[in-house]
């Protein structure tokens, strides 16, 4: 897993590099878009942490040129402004996530992991979510390397949440994905399945929050 940090503030870059080294994810660092483009041309990275206000070309210009070339590499924007424009947010410009400076390194690392997880989950059969590992091929689930036995519905529900982390799933969403049209399903059944799943995964990094009136949201806290 390789991350490229593009940041012109040396103190921040130095600290970020040190923090990521300590948690076992060393990252490369360049100070300008021009240098980043050169680095990207000969090296492969799994994601970018991109500052917006850079000397020379801005972070957005790099992001735009990357997206125009069809490169889907996850980009996390670091910005000093919460809102770039009235209508256009960092996400509209093609970023996968953004954080407003000053950032908490734990938060930054968690967001990076979430992005990488999303990227990797799509490519491989194993989803690693903190201490929870879900093998999509063998249907094996472990928490802290301890196997967890899940029933079919529970496993389907878990897969649904892991594939839609940090997004709200309504009861209808879940019913549509988990049950066929004929199957008698009551919202109650979903609630019961969820309660059992929560209980079995109580030691895991996965939190499934209920937002009454809106739906459910899965989040990895690692």
């Amino acid at each position: 897993m390789r991350i490229l940090l593009i940041e012109d503030n040396e103190a921040l870059a130095d600290a970020t590099q040190e923090y990521f080294r300590q948690i076992g994810h060393p990252l490369d660092w360049t100070v300008s878009v021009e240098m980043a483009e050169r680095t990207l041309s000969w090296d492969d990275f799994d994601m970018l942490i991109l500052d917006i206000n850079l000397p020379g070309r801005s972070g957005y210009q790099l992001l735009q040129s990357l997206r125009q070339k069809g490169r889907t590499i996850p980009v996390l924007i670091l910005t000093a402004r919460a809102e770039i424009d009235d209508r256009v947010s960092a996400l509209d410009l093609g970023a996968d996530d953004y954080l407003v400076k000053p950032v908490d390194f734990r938060e930054l690392a968690a967001r990076c992991r979430a992005l990488l997880r999303r990227e990797r989950g799509a490519a491989s059969n194993t989803m690693v979510c903190g201490n929870l590992i879900f093998n999509l091929a063998t249907h094996q689930i472990t928490v802290n390397n301890q196997a967890v036995e899940l029933r079919l519905r529970e496993r389907q529900l878990l897969e649904l949440f892991l594939k839609n982390l940090d997004r709200v799933l309504t009861k209808e969403d879940i019913a549509n994905k988990l049950y066929t049209f004929d199957e008698a399903n009551t919202p109650n059944a979903i609630e019961q399945t969820l309660t059992r799943l929560r209980k079995k995964l109580s030691e895991s990094s996965l939190h499934i929050k209920t937002i009454r009136g809106l739906g459910y949201l899965g989040h990895i806290d690692d």
């Binding site: 939190h207 937002i211 009454r212 009136g213 809106l214 949201l217 989040h219």
Partner: peptide, 23 residues
């Protein structure tokens, strides 16, 4: 409100705070 609530719940997922939404 839904977008804001989603963000807040994500940030508070590790806590014991329950949220509800009625429109």
């Amino acid at each position: 409100v839904e977008a804001l609530l989603t963000e807040t719940v994500r940030d508070q997922a590790h806590t014991q705070i329950d949220f509800s939404y009625t429109a």
